[in-house]
């Protein structure tokens, strides 16, 4: 991880989000900690159902359901959000933190023009006339690369292509210059070629705005190019947390290895098959004892007992690269060198 001399803009500590349901307590996020500085990008990666969206919604204060229980700490620019008043958190949304969603078609209101929706977002935090806001909306659409913004500002979402809609969504999120931008699977609903463009755009804008960015994805490939830090999430917890170099050059958790192996790569030979991780993610109501990944881990026999009884902690003393795994570090790097790294050679 990067040296934390600067105070992080977003500082999440031991976050837990549990849902009470008829089937039992769903531990969607269970003791998660991470930090993001301004100008930096954090990638949160994990299979679907690992609690990524629930985490982002928690930061945004969007868990309105009465069955949601939030504990731990979320500090935004030093201000504690867990337990803060609804109105106080609302006032931060849009201005200090903004969010981009997966499917821009369903995430935009079908009955209002794209311009209208951007104008609305801008005017929540800026007391300006509609005319001024409209000018701002056109500038934003231009900035995110929408051709003929003066015309497209009056279009409805259904009149845009998928990529253009996501650009418009980004324009809306950026309308009030947020210091933190969370993108939850921003490219999942898009074509591969458009995916790269949108990621480039987010990276560009981050440079301009010097904001803190969190990109959430199930695909390590998406964050390979853009993330400074990467947090690998499994069953509501972090299993590995480090810089992008650490994860890609010496990833240490068996789950990370699985994600890396199932990552589509351009340098891969066509004939080589992707290797999906065997098994399915656990139920978040009955998370396996010990290491939550143990039922799917092919190295569980190396350690045995502790894997099924003891919950591994993320951070070893004196290291900033966190790995929640019972396999001794020397053995992990041996496996990486002998089995995992050769797959990318």
């Amino acid at each position: 991880m990067t040296d934390n001399v600067k105070t992080p803009y977003l500082d999440v500590n031991d976050l837990r989000v549990h849902f009470r349901t008829d089937d039992g307590l769903v531990r969607s996020v269970d003791g998660l900690s991470f930090q993001v500085e301004r100008g930096k990008t954090l990638g949160i990666v994990g299979e679907s159902g690992s609690g990524k969206s629930v985490t982002s919604m928690a930061v945004m204060g969007l868990h309105t359901a009465s069955n949601a229980e939030l504990t731990g700490s979320i500090r935004l620019d030093g201000q504690e959000l867990v337990g803060a008043g609804k109105e106080a958190v609302r006032a931060l949304r849009g201005k200090k933190m903004a969010m981009i969603f997966q499917d821009p078609l369903s995430a935009m209101h079908p009955y209002y023009t794209v311009g209208n929706q951007i104008i609305e977002a801008y005017r929540i935090h800026n007391k300006v006339t509609k005319k001024v806001a409209r000018k701002h909306a056109i500038d934003l659409l231009d900035r995110v690369g929408i051709p003929e913004p003066g015309k497209r500002v009056d279009s409805y979402p259904h009149q845009f292509s998928g990529g253009m809609r996501q650009r418009a969504m980004i324009a809306m999120a950026l309308s009030c210059d947020p210091d933190l931008l969370i993108a939850d699977e921003p490219t999942t609903a898009l074509d591969v070629t458009v995916q790269a463009q949108i990621l480039d755009l987010i990276r560009d804008l981050q440079k301009d705005f010097n904001s803190a960015v969190v990109i959430i994805t199930h695909d390590l490939g998406v964050v390979a190019e853009v993330a400074d830090d990467i947090l690998v999430m499994y069953a509501g917890r972090a299993v590995e947390y480090g810089t992008a170099e650490e994860i890609f050059n010496e990833g240490e958790h068996p789950y990370t290895w699985g994600l890396l192996s199932s990552m589509p790569r351009f340098d891969r030979k066509r004939t080589e098959r992707l290797e999906p991780i065997k098994g399915t993610p656990p139920s978040l109501i009955r998370v396996p004892k010990g290491c939550p990944f143990n039922p799917r881990c092919q190295y569980v026999d190396l350690v045995g007992e502790p894997c099924v009884t003891e919950r591994p902690s993320l951070l070893a003393e004196g290291s900033s690269h966190g790995v929640a795994c019972h396999i001794p570090p020397e053995q992990r790097s041996a496996i990486w060198n002998d089995e995992i790294a050769p797959r990318f050679a």
């Binding site: 609302r90 006032a91 903004a98 209101h109 079908p110």
Partner: peptide, 24 residues
């Protein structure tokens, strides 16, 4: 989803309900 977006923008709940919810 667009209701979640409306809230994420920082709209007041009243506006979310009347302008975005009821309209739909």
């Amino acid at each position: 989803d667009y209701i979640r977006t409306a809230r994420a923008k920082g709209l007041r709940e009243r506006t979310v309900v009347m302008k975005h919810g009821l309209r739909g």
